[in-house]
Structure formats: structure tokens, C-alpha cells
Design a protein around this nucleic acid. Sequence first.
DNA 1: CGCGACATTTTGTATAGTCATAAAACGTCT
DNA 2: AGACGTTTTATGACTATACAAAATGTCGCG
Lengths: 235, 235
Amino acid sequence: MTEVAPYQRIKDDLRDRIHTGLWRPGDSIPGEMQLAETFGCARATVHRALRELAEEGVLERRRKTGTRVAYPKGRSLALDIPLVQDEIRATGAEYKYRLMHRGMEPLPALPAMALDRATGDEALHLQCLHFADRRPYQFEDRWIDPATVPECKNESFEETGPNPWLVRNVPWTDAEHTISADIASEKIAEILDIPVGDPVLIVERRTWNDKGPVTMVRFHHPGRTHRLRTPFGAR
Amino acid sequence: MTEVAPYQRIKDDLRDRIHTGLWRPGDSIPGEMQLAETFGCARATVHRALRELAEEGVLERRRKTGTRVAYPKGRSLALDIPLVQDEIRATGAEYKYRLMHRGMEPLPALPAMALDRATGDEALHLQCLHFADRRPYQFEDRWIDPATVPECKNESFEETGPNPWLVRNVPWTDAEHTISADIASEKIAEILDIPVGDPVLIVERRTWNDKGPVTMVRFHHPGRTHRLRTPFGAR
DNA sequence: CGCGACATTTTGTATAGTCATAAAACGTCT
DNA sequence: AGACGTTTTATGACTATACAAAATGTCGCG
């Protein structure tokens, strides 16, 4: 029943040989044809296993030279960044959303640069608060480029946050995330209901379309309580 | 030019249909056979395109039901966490390493829990500083489980940091990362040469083997200057 | 000796055909 | 009508084969 697919068995087997140290970084491993023979399967099956392992960064493949065990590079760490409401509801807490500010405004220097526009160009500025069990959980400070997303001007964002709306209505192709730490300014402290000087964890996101920059947003979290964590067993 | 592989063209084409809104989340898309016909290729080629798009989370596939466009879930964000020395040297700065402390010590409560051992069990405790151009860049506070990695007791870690050594000598299978923000305590402030109360970005990592927990480590970075960022164009 | 043309090797991709598997739809029997 | 087994259908996986592309090594010519 839970018969594993052959290509999976091969992947696991090869991974094992690396994890046990039988094959070490830099080692050349047998060619596809030879492996196919030892595993008693077609080359295509071995190929798939090797291809996927290479995609995961475990192996490095070059034509003619063959396949070798990759030197461990930096870990690439897969963080899950779910929609806030999902994240909060997953913990069993009650989610609440409040729009604090909405208006077309000239872009200050920093967001302008982030959106690749000139300082002073008009853009939609949104500030929202997300609550978990009536306590501030995340402060969202967002700019949306009306040139790329003209529909945003007709949205009030009173009821639903910009994130779900954007995710649903504006497909994007590229994103960049930046994570940093800061301390709460007076304004941020008041908004998040924490003492001035407390740590704040900041996630900044910029997204692009084929048409250009879509939005740039900074999420502020109370740093003492908030953590970003990878799911266990990410391989 | 047909320099791109057909399965890639198909992937891009399908992605486009989604990004342009032709196909929207929840929509069913044509079956493999039908797509194969419209693209003028074999079913296997379409299959590969669909499989990879499903792996990327763009599509959802169920037998008999067919393939449909996935509702955008949380983004999973791939952070690169390179070895410190690579990270520093990549910026052109000079890298320097200093071992501050090394000793077999009874585990305090927190690291003990992280390593899944009893408080008071002996483990190897290391504290190191990594410099970029003579300025403190990262403070590393690490515990290594000697039960899983007995060789660690013979390593001085005077010259090379524990990270490269572990990466090279102790294969691991699972890792968990946690990112959080804090403010500099007196001790951390002195070590990192920043004012007390400044923000600190903390990355914590736990890694496992088939034999059990390997190591747990906390990296402290000056938060005003340090950023974690995703590589651009991660799709 | 230098260097370009060519052959070889190994991975990459495509194809058709087969079998497996899951789930929905259908039909039959009670 | 409802329960249960059968058929249908779409995806999932594997095999075998063929050819393409890339990198390397080699041969031969000037």
C-alpha cells in the first residue's frame, strides 16, 4: 500500500550514502547508467532521482564530468510566511483587523526607491493593525503602486487587509524579503502597545509583476514574543 | 529561438495563463492529454511541466478530479544562510575569527531542552566571535552534544569556527531555524561593541542526525546593520 | 609546439507505451 | 432509496529508446 516509488527509494538511498559519509563532498559518484544497473531500473528513473537531488543542492551535475557530491553551501532556509489571519487562527487565537490609515500620498524617499519610482510620485499608503486575541500582533505599513495596480484605488480595505486582496487580485512573479531587528520608536511602541525601546522584528517585502513593482510593505512584530521558524524536517 | 526546452515553454505558458488571470485560483485546467494535443507534444512532457508547477505550489493535482489552479497559500520564503566567512568575504571585507570560550559544561535548562537532554548533562560549550573588517559581525553561542558527535572533544576550534568543522565532518538530516529580535544585554553589547539597548537579530539553529540532536546554536547580529534577505527572483 | 577540428562521454530532454492508483460516476441488488 | 461493488477516467510512475547538448580529451596539421 504505502509502496514507495522507486525513484524515491533511490533518492533516499543516495542521500544515505552521503549522510553516512560513504560519499563525501567532492566525491564523484557513478554515472546514471551504472547506477541504473546497480539499482536494477531504467536510466530515466535514476535520472529523476539525481535531478531532484541536484535541485535540492545535494549533488552537482556537469555533462561529461559526471555527478559529484556538492560541498555544503549555505543552508537555504525555507521560512513559511502565511497570511497573518491564517497564522493567528492556527494558534487558536481570535483574529481582528483594523485599517488605521488610507490615502493617496506622495512617496517618501525610501518607499520610492523600493518601488523604483521618483520621490514625490503618488502612491496608495495603507497602515493596518492585526490583532491576536485583542492584542496587537503585527503592524503593517504598505505602499501600493497605482501604476501597476490601478484597481487598488477603488478598494477601501476597511474589512479585509491588503494582503489577502492583493494575493487574490494581483498576481506577482517575484518577491524579495528582508528581515531585520530594530527597537520600538515612540510611534511603533504606541501602536503595538509595548514599551518604547522594546525589540521589534521587521519583515519587509517587495513584490513585482511583469508590469513593474507592485507593492512594498513592512511588517512590525513585537520582538519579545514573535518568532519566525522553519517547519521541522524541511530537508 | 527554441533554445528553451519544451517543458519549460509549457511551464511558462501555463504560468502566464494564471498570471494574466485567464485561469484563476480554483479553476480546473484541461487534462494532460488535451494539453499535450494543444501544445503538440507528448503527455509525458506536459506531465513534467504540471508536476513541477504543482511542486512549486502553483497548481493542485488530484487523480480523477484533474488539475486546478491553487489558491495562493502563504509564501514560503527561501532565505540563504551562508557560512559566515563566505558571507563576509563576499562583501569584500576581511574575515577574522576568535574563539572566546571552550569547555565541557553541564547544560543549562534551555539548551538542554533544545538538545533533548536533561539539564546538567555535559556538553561542549563554545562561544565565538566573527569579525568583518575588525568589527564584530556575529556572536556565536553554541552547544554540541558529545553523545552524537564524540569527535568534537578532540577539536580545539582555535583556528576554524565550529560551523565549517561541523558542516564538513558531521552530516545532518534535519534542521530547524528560529529568527527573533531582542535588545542587547550588557554582555552582548560589550561583545558586539554596540550600545546597551540596541537591537539584536537572533538566528537560532538546531540540527539533527539519525543518531539524535547534533548541535544548537544562537547567532547574535547587531540589528541596525544586519539584514537577512532572500535572493532576488526566487519564483 | 600551439591550436583548432573532431570524437567521446555523460547528462538533459522527448517520446510512446504500459501499468498503477485514486476517485468519481454508474449501476445493481437488496 | 440506500448500500455496495464495478467501470471509467485522469493523474502518477516506470521502461526503453532516441536524439540533443555540453564539456573534455585527442588527434593531426601547420
